[in-house]
């Protein structure tokens, strides 16, 4: 088996890298793939929390690198899905504890046993980023329709393009708020895609369900009704090569919009 190593990165912090990682990983595993998530955010690990695995971690990636345990011993199995594993970051160490070469080596070993290796990248463009990218051949750049996030994404794209080992990168637009886009208060999906001129792999709507799902330690893709969950599931399908149309986020069923539609129809007829 030769798995695909995908790094999930953003430049700016707080745009939803780790949430994206947890959800795409879970969705891919639910679809029957063997998935391992590698948290490279040394000193600021969070992926374990989002998956509800924080109490099960015995060994971390630093333990593997420093040969205190074997790689397989450090992999924590997900509670629900046996296809899903986590290689946790060390919480008490800093970004220099693992080198690019060591991460490359770990990814190469994991490739033999897994279909997908998702690498969760720390924020920033320093060594932590360089390490996380080292073993990957694909990248997902997470951004939101905000100026600072888009600017940082542009920077990250520039850095990814400079790295030969990254064969392709895709854009994931997170925390999209259709109402604000409609009222022209927020940049639209098209605006961001045009400005960054990158291929889109997903549009995730802002969803309060993300907060509750994080609190429970259960990725939102497990919730069939959630719109963000559906959107993440679609991203997973696109990664697997399926062609899935983007969700129509503008579809709103509020009373006000129905009234507006009624009147706009009336005016249209009069003309």
């Amino acid at each position: 088996m030769t798995g695909r190593v995908i790094v999930i990165t953003s430049g700016k912090g707080g745009v939803g890298k780790t949430t994206t990682n947890a959800n795409i990983g879970t969705a891919l595993a639910r679809a029957g793939n063997k998935v391992v998530m590698v948290d490279t955010d040394l000193g600021l690990r969070n992926l374990d929390l989002l998956l509800g695995l924080e109490n099960r971690i015995v060994y971390t990636i630093v333990d593997v690198v420093e040969e205190r345990c074997k790689l397989k011993q450090a992999l924590v199995k997900d509670k629900k899905n046996p296809n899903l594993c986590l290689l946790a970051a060390a919480q008490t160490r800093d970004k220099t504890s693992v080198t690019e070469e060591q991460l490359k080596d770990i990814c190469n070993k994991l490739k033999k046993d897994f279909d997908f290796i998702l690498v969760d990248c720390p924020a920033g463009i320093e060594q932590g980023f360089q390490n996380a990218v080292a073993g990957a051949s694909e990248a997902i750049v997470v951004t939101t329709p905000e100026m600072s996030a888009v600017r940082d994404a542009d920077r990250i794209i520039g850095l990814l393009e400079a790295r030969e080992e990254i064969k392709s990168y895709k854009l994931l637009l997170n925390r999209v708020r259709p109402n604000l886009i409609k009222s022209n208060d927020m940049m639209s999906v098209e605006d961001v895609v045009e400005i960054l001129s990158a291929d889109l792999i997903g549009i995730i709507p802002e969803d309060t369900g993300i907060i509750t799902s994080t609190n429970k330690g259960e990725p939102i893709v497990n919730d069939e009704k959630s719109l963000a969950g559906k959107a993440y599931n679609n991203v997973a399908k696109r990664i697997m090569g399926e062609e899935v149309p983007f969700l129509d986020l503008e579809e709103d069923s509020g009373v006000l919009s129905k009234v507006k539609k009624f009147f706009s129809n009336l005016i249209g007829k009069e003309k």
């Binding site: 888009v150 600017r151 542009d154 920077r155 520039g158 022209n184 927020m186 940049m187």
Partner: peptide
Amino acid sequence: TEAKEENAKEVACNRLRVVLMQDR
């Protein structure tokens, strides 16, 4: 109000284009 709202997004796009041009 419509005219005002149009600005927020357009302003963001234009500012970003200029700043990215400078970054790049």
